[in-house]
Design a protein around this nucleic acid. Structure first.
Lengths: 338, 338
DNA sequence: GTGAAAGCGCTAACAT
DNA sequence: ATGTTAGCGCTTTCAC
């Protein structure tokens, strides 16, 4: 049935073209020493046979594969699609390819990285996931460039990390809420043990306190919509409701907004301010108009690509914190007349 | 600075363990003829050196890479993330890996597939994109299994295709709208030259006509939100407004819903029925509650994986049309009392 | 500029 | 069960 016809090799092309096999190799190597006449002969024969250089063989010799390994801890992350698209486009220009694995964000990307190393990848990009200390050590020893996106686990030490402004952003949100006159401010946390949540919470709370506020009320929404809805119901059923909620990500904030609007009939913005973090696509829809903080994803992916392509340039292995932008929308608009 | 330490080879391990290099190979080959004693010696030595079999070398010999190439024509497609996650998980169990490329949905995935073939991939999955006739021919000749997701271009002939119910689904929607009493029904098209749109439109229109309706009003939204909003404004400004709109995908339907609700103050469902297609995540949110047709994505990805892993089983190379489910929600609810 | 020859790291006969 | 040997398809000296 589907019997694989033998794929032509450089040898076959050489025979047909009446040259040596080495000449074939040279014909496909940009800038190699070869006469135009020979190259033409080779390329002609190659086209006839449908020859395509075997990159596997090339990789074996060169000791590098032109493949970059990507492990994504949370493929459901709303930015993953965009991130992968940007990265793929960017790396194609550098003639690299992407071997992509999905995994669990709360675990080490151990098996995935293990596999990737067997393919002798030229670099590793870990998004929203961690690296076990043993493998981190391996990568360091073998000199494989590694870059993390939004992961601050201990094993990222000695590697480049690119992340959003998880401290400055929440501080800006705190300032904004206070400036708009909200005073009974609550905070909705993501996963309790997530470094991202801890950073965002600490920055937000600290800022409120430094403005003379009390420690804000606190609920947990685990970064997900359903728990966020539940938490919002609890908050809004209190005798002394908050007049604003800052949620540690947009996913939760949108859930909160829906509950406030449809289950409690609240005029979001005027009666209750809601702010999120990350600026996912839905947040700017007319239906939601959620105040949030947006990350410069393109810059972030460029940085990751740069680091992998030219690791030497980033030798002291800095932690890049990419500044984004506060997006003020109707969900924190109390109306002009205060 | 980052000088790559030489990676240990099977030879190094063999020397350290005091066995032949072939023994090392056997120790890492499940089910190979090797004594426990030898295997232990090898594994111990391997661990000491941090040895990892070089899959590139293995691929060269075996003539297969255990890599499946994926080209996605539209990485912004809301299902891409989920699809990739499902596929990756599914194929990992079969010890395959995913080399992922992004491309343009209206072009051939030519360069991407070209590259993929150089890596001697074991199979190709093309999502929302096409294959040039020349490469299609190549793949057939070389016996490389190819499977398409939602692409009905001419070059898919002779390959397995998995797609949603682009005919039956819209027919069900037509039935549903009529049964709910909507009579002045409009259709919003996606890209004019997309096969998907043509199928959905033909099925919907045909069904309406077969129920004795006139050919529905027609606007174009190009599958995207903004054009859809514009088209909706045009529709709703007509003297004789439609009382229902079927949009060829949810993205457009949600845009239409927002415009109707916020710009025209229309009570969606009662005054104007809106239905979409695909059941993207947002459609089931309390804010929208959009009637739509959902695809069995998990089954679809399973099928794609099956086809690639065991192509012989699918020898007549069928076109799989995966039946989904009509999701009736508030956006087509006229209220009980009619 | 070109060909011959030596490997890259591994698997798969083939002996033993 | 184990070692020896011959490649897989290329790139890269090294002569010429």
């Amino acid at each position: 049935m589907s019997n694989r016809i033998a794929v032509p090799s450089a040898h076959d092309v050489a025979r047909l073209a009446g040259v040596s096999q080495a000449a074939v190799s040279r014909a496909f190597t940009p800038g190699a020493c070869i006469s135009d006449a020979t190259r033409d002969k080779v390329l002609f024969a190659a086209k006839q046979l449908g020859y395509r250089p075997n990159l596997i063989a090339r990789s074996l010799i060169k000791g590098r594969s032109d493949i970059i390994g990507v492990v994504v801890g949370n493929a459901r992350n709303p930015f993953f699609t965009l991130a992968l698209d940007l990265l793929s486009t960017r790396l194609r220009r550098a003639r690299r390819h992407l071997l992509v694995f999905t995994g669990q964000s709360n675990e080490y990307a151990h098996v995935q990285v293990e596999d990737l190393l067997k393919y002798r990848v030229d670099g590793l990009i870990l998004m929203w996931t961690r690296l076990s200390p043993a493998l981190a050590e391996q990568c360091r020893k073998e000199g494989i460039p590694v870059a993390f996106l939004d992961s601050r686990a201990s094993t990222t030490e000695g590697f480049v990390t690119v992340s959003g402004a998880n401290s400055r952003g929440p501080a800006l949100i705190a300032d904004h809420l206070l400036q708009r006159g909200y005073r009974r401010i609550a905070f909705m946390a993501g996963y309790q043990d997530s470094a991202t949540n801890r950073e965002r919470e600490a920055a937000f709370t600290t800022r409120l306190i430094s403005h003379g506020q009390a420690i804000p009320m606190r609920v947990v929404g685990n970064f997900r919509r359903e728990p966020a809805r539940e938490a919002t119901r609890a908050l809004l059923s209190l005798n002394s409701r908050p007049d604003a909620i800052f949620c540690a990500n947009d996913e939760m904030a949108l859930g909160a907004l829906e509950v406030a609007r449809y289950e409690f009939g609240i005029d979001v913005g005027r009666e209750l301010g809601i702010a999120g973090f990350d600026d996912i696509g839905e947040s700017s829809w007319p239906t939601f108009l959620l105040t949030t903080y947006s990350h410069p994803l393109e810059e972030m992916m460029d940085k990751l690509a740069d680091v992998i392509l030219d690791p030497v340039q980033y030798e002291p292995r800095p932690q890049f914190v990419m500044e984004g932008e506060l997006k003020i929308r109707a969900s924190t608009d109390r109306g002009r007349a205060t």
